[in-house]
Amino acid sequence: MNATADVAVIGGTGFYSFLDDPEQVSVETPYGLPSATISVGTVAGRRVAFLPRHGDHHDYPPHAIPYRANLWALRSLGVRQVLAPCAVGGLREEVAPGDIVVPDQLVDRTYRRIPSYVESGAVHLPYADPYCERLGAAVAGADPEIKAGGAMVVIEGPRFSTRAESQHYAAQGWSLINMTGHPEAPLAREMQQCYTAIALVTDMDAGVEAGQGVGQEEVFALFKANLERLKGVLTRTIESLPDPDGCTCSTWAEGMELSYGIPTPDGAGEQGEEAGA
Rank of each mutant, 00 (worst) to 15 (best):
A171C: 06
G78Q: 11
N178K: 09
Y111T: 04
N178E: 15
E23W: 03
P62I: 09
H124R: 14
G12R: 13
P115A: 15
G45C: 04
A170E: 12
Y67C: 03
W174K: 03
P85D: 07
G149S: 06
T251R: 14
E228K: 02
E257K: 06
F15E: 05
S76R: 14
L230W: 11
R68E: 01
A128I: 04
I38G: 02
L258A: 06
P85V: 04
Q192A: 10
Y31K: 02
L83S: 01
Y169D: 08
D129E: 13
R112L: 15
H124I: 15
M256L: 14
C86V: 14
T37S: 06
C132Y: 08
P52M: 06
I114C: 02
I38F: 08
V154C: 14
V123E: 02
P144F: 12
A73L: 06
P126G: 08
A84Q: 06
M204K: 04
S39P: 00
G90E: 07
T235H: 05
G89K: 06
A185T: 12
R112A: 13
T37L: 02
L125C: 05
R68V: 00
L74D: 04
W252R: 08
E165V: 10
I65M: 09
Y131Q: 03
D56R: 15
E228W: 05
C249P: 01
I155H: 00
A151I: 07
R92C: 11
E23T: 10
D6C: 00
A122T: 10
G157M: 07
L74P: 00
G173V: 07
R68Y: 04
A140T: 07
A185R: 02
E165Q: 13
I262M: 12
Y16H: 12
P244E: 08
E156A: 02
D56G: 13
I238N: 04
E119G: 10
L135N: 03
H124M: 14
A170C: 10
E257L: 04
D21V: 01
P263D: 11
E119F: 15
V139K: 00
A8S: 10
G246S: 09
G272Y: 11
H54L: 07
P66N: 12
A122G: 02
D56Y: 12
E133G: 02
G232S: 10
I262L: 15
S76Q: 05
P130H: 12
A8H: 05
G90I: 11
V233G: 01
S26C: 02
C86P: 00
L33G: 03
T162I: 06
E254C: 03
A3Y: 08
V107D: 05
R80E: 15
E257I: 02
L230M: 15
P244D: 07
